[in-house]
């Protein structure tokens, strides 16, 4: 079904969905920013509030992955080939996510 639409339409749809689903990560991002700057360093509350970055990282990585696929599709004009390359990138993203899991 997606193959029948144009890449630019897909990009617009991605923008809308990302904006809608980005409300929670942005809320979390602001709370983390406030915790980082206003809560006592090394305190339990700061450690608890700083723990929500996974939501933000997941949102950004998902949007980035979709955008790279759309960019590939738009430039190559080949939906099938772009889609195959996108699945290959999933592995790279999984590794990135796993290594980011260790960031304190």
């Amino acid at each position: 079904m997606l193959a029948e639409t144009s890449p630019l339409f897909a990009a617009a749809a991605l923008f809308g969905l990302s904006t809608y689903f980005g409300l929670i990560p942005i809320h979390k991002l602001i709370q983390m920013h406030e915790a980082r700057h206003e809560l006592r360093q090394g305190s339990a509350s700061r450690l608890r509030r700083a723990g929500g970055w996974v939501v933000v990282a997941l949102w950004l990585l998902t949007v980035m992955w979709c955008a790279v696929f759309i960019g590939d599709w738009w430039a190559s004009g080949d939906y099938q080939a772009a889609s195959e390359r996108a699945w290959q990138r999933i592995g790279i993203l999984a590794k990135l996510a796993a290594s980011a899991g260790g960031v304190r």
């Binding site: 923008f15 990302s18 980005g22 949007v63 430039a75």
Partner: peptide, 30 residues
């Protein structure tokens, strides 16, 4: 929190990430 302001921040970050992602994707296609 003001929902409208959160949406503006979300839209701005989404636009930047999508633009960057599409540029990377376009470069990877060639």
């Amino acid at each position: 929190f003001a929902r409208r302001r959160l949406a503006l921040y979300s839209a701005a970050i989404s636009a930047c990430v999508i633009a960057l992602g599409m540029a990377i994707g376009a470069a990877a296609a060639f």
